[in-house]
Design a protein around this nucleic acid. Structure first.
Length: 458
RNA sequence: GUGGGCGUAGCUCAGCUGGUAGAGCGCCUGGUUGUGGUCCAGGAGGUCGCGGGUUCAAGCCCCGUCGUUCACCCCA
């Protein structure tokens, strides 16, 4: 069989890269759990009708079909309720999960979920057909206090700050604020205004202004006000004053300003060099189910990837017709964030295997001696592997070097498994050692994540 | 889904106006008597994505196809 080649949009990592990804996932899990979020995993498939109910994402869904299905037994061709599709995000499955287990969950329910999702899109950098998302959401029954918006932002900011990635900018806005403002200036089609304003990162401001007149039915003055609003950004609550200066008033606007200010104040304690939290009144999010706070996040120097982490407030995350479950959540695109950094060499692991020590093999006959040394080291939590074959020591050292294993242990068959010498192959230093007491420095125990910039940034 | 670029050794690529393939890196072996990285000397490895066409002759031109990549769209 011919050598298979990479399948575009289905990124696969090399061992050292996977090591970095695992570190990141561990870190996320740790932060989320520190804030009391519980892990949930949902099945990979949902009924097609449920996946499609959110709108026109239909083209993106991968459909599942049994190879042996009888053609005429395949009601699925027409019956979307019995057909299955792979989930394309974690929010839809979670909403279904909440409804299904509502009777056995405690509300407000806070969960994190780290899983693969699938979208049948045209792939490109940062955009994949199979990728990992890490979501946190808080969902309430009938109502959900606003302070959870602040909480979700703070948890994600803290999670991002702990990751070995470039600094990020968490941009926050509020749908009530912009909708209230647009209504306040007299826009008749508020959604149309929002859609047009959303084009600001693709088109120059005057072009967007023209579109506001042509497509959203605003007059010049209204369009100008909307553009001025979109231009407001601040890392503190000073945006409130600047919005007031535009002289537009509405109740909804007041509410939005209040909420957005609260999010910024609430995040002040976690914001820093690694994560900057700012109000950006340009952010709208295309998705129409957001009703309040909205988030978008970009990495410094990698803005072209788009948002790596977004979400917001839904008044109706889920509803069974009788009870409504409002929610607020953020979704981190782990693959979008990591894969370009790994591919560009900006993120790597100090070694490609967990082993801190390679125990050399003198000859096949003394393998039990090498195994015993390894066992003693492992008993104290030191990751160890034994050389595959009794090659010349030069070869065995090179074996370790290729994998980045920092230490090679030379057993002394004369003394059995209790002695030998250990060599730090980076410095060349070699000392007598006892496998029951020797241990590597803490920083060598596990592979480290290296963030050194390689000559490749975009 | 729409439009453009590209597909040559494991990797990154070169190959002039068509004359039956090259570099760097990597890999393997050796420079004896069990300690790598440097250096030196050898060596392995390619149906030039695939199919068809034009031509005495195609990696190079034409058509198709698949793959890949970028932009739009959408989004993580």
């Amino acid at each position: 069989m011919a050598r298979p080649s990479a399948m575009s949009g289905f990124p696969e990592l090399l061992p050292g890269q996977r090591l970095v990804e695992q570190r990141v996932l561990d870190s996320l899990q740790q932060t989320f759990e520190l804030h009391g979020f519980v892990s949930v995993e949902t099945r990979a498939v949902e009924p097609l009708d449920r996946l499609l109910s959110k709108g026109e994402t239909s083209k993106e869904v991968y459909v599942l079909r049994r190879l042996q299905a009888e053609p005429d037994d395949d009601r699925g061709e027409t019956d979307s309720a019995s057909r299955l599709g792979l989930h394309f995000d974690l929010t839809v499955p979670f909403a279904r999960y909440v409804l299904e287990f509502a009777g056995r969950l405690e509300f407000p329910f806070r969960r994190y979920q780290i899983q693969k999702v699938w979208r049948g899109e045209r792939p490109q950098e940062g955009r994949y057909r199979e990728f990992t998302q890490a979501d946190i959401d808080i969902v309430g029954r009938d109502e959900l206090a606003f302070h959870h918006d602040v909480e979700v932002a703070r948890v994600m900011a803290e999670a991002l700050a702990a990751l070995p990635v470039p600094p990020v900018r968490l941009q926050v806005n509020n749908r009530k604020l912009i909708q209230g403002f647009y209504a306040g200036v007299g826009a008749r089609d508020v959604d149309a205004v929002m859609r047009v304003v959303d084009k600001l990162d693709k088109l120059p401001a005057d072009a967007v202004g023209a579109l506001l007149v042509d497509e959203a039915g605003l007059d010049e003055r209204q369009a100008s006000l909307c553009l001025q609003l979109a231009g407001i950004r601040s890392a503190d609550t000073s945006f409130v004053e600047r919005v007031r200066e535009l002289g537009v008033t509405s109740q909804l606007l007041d509410r939005g300003l209040e909420e957005l200010a609260a999010v910024l104040e609430g995040c002040a304690s976690v914001a820093g060099d690694r994560v900057r939290v700012e109000a950006d009144l340009r952010i709208a999010r295309g998705l129409d189910y957001y009703t309040g706070t909205v988030f978008e996040t970009v990495m410094d120097g990698l803005e072209h990837l788009g948002s790596i982490c977004s979400g917001g407030r839904y008044d109706a995350l889920a509803s069974d017709g009788r009870t409504t479950y409002p929610g607020v959540g953020i979704s981190l695109g782990v693959s979008r964030m990591l894969v370009p950094l790994l591919a560009g060499g900006r993120l790597s692991a100090s070694r490609s295997v967990p082993s801190a020590v390679l125990v050399a093999l003198v000859d096949e006959g003394s393998r039990p001696v090498s195994d015993a040394v390894a066992r003693r080291l492992r008993a104290r939590g030191i990751p160890v592997e034994v050389a595959a074959s009794p090659q010349k020591f030069g070869k065995q050292i090179r074996f370790a070097e290729r994998r980045g294993i920092p230490y090679v242990w030379f057993p002394d068959p004369g003394t059995g498994s209790t002695g030998g010498q250990v060599k730090d192959i980076r410095s060349g230093e070699q000392v007598e050692a006892d496998p029951d007491t020797w241990r590597p420095p803490a920083e060598d125990l596990r592979p480290r994540v290296l963030t050194g910039d390689a000559p490749n940034d975009d």
